[in-house]
C-alpha cells in the first residue's frame, strides 16, 4: 500500500485517497472549434510510462484536496507531491528533485 504525503495532512495510507488518472491534461478552451480527433485525444489518450508518471489523487477521506503526485510506475517510489496548477517537475529518473 502506497504512503502518500498529503501537503496538508502529512503521510497517509493510499486507502484515504482516490486516484484521478494522469494529471496535466488541459481541457481545450474552445472544444467546439477543435476536430473530433483532438477531442477524442483529450478524453482518451493517456501516457503509460515505465517510469515517472504524473498523476492526480484526491485526499478523499481527509482534506478532500486534489494533489499532483509524481510516481515511478516501476518502483512505486513517489518523487514529489505538489499542488494542482504547479508545473510538472522534471526528474532525472532516480535522482529526485526534492
Amino acid at each position: 500500500m502506497l504512503q502518500i504525503t498529503c501537503p496538508w495532512c502529512g503521510p497517509r495510507n493510499e486507502t484515504e485517497f482516490s486516484f484521478g488518472g494522469e494529471s496535466h491534461i488541459i481541457r481545450p478552451v474552445r472544444p467546439e472549434s477543435i476536430s473530433d480527433r483532438d477531442w477524442s485525444d483529450y478524453q482518451f489518450l493517456r501516457e503509460n510510462p515505465k517510469g515517472t508518471h504524473y498523476e492526480r489523487w484526491q485526499h478523499r477521506f481527509g482534506c478532500r484536496q486534489w494533489i499532483n503526485v509524481a510516481r515511478d510506475t516501476l518502483s512505486h517510489e513517489i518523487y514529489s507531491v505538489y499542488p494542482m496548477g504547479d508545473p510538472k517537475p522534471v526528474f532525472d529518473r532516480k535522482e529526485a528533485l526534492l
Partner: peptide, 13 residues
Amino acid sequence: LAWMEEWQQCEWP
C-alpha cells in the same frame, strides 16, 4: 460532490 470538487480544484481553480 466529488465531481464538482474535481472540476473546481483541477480545472477551474
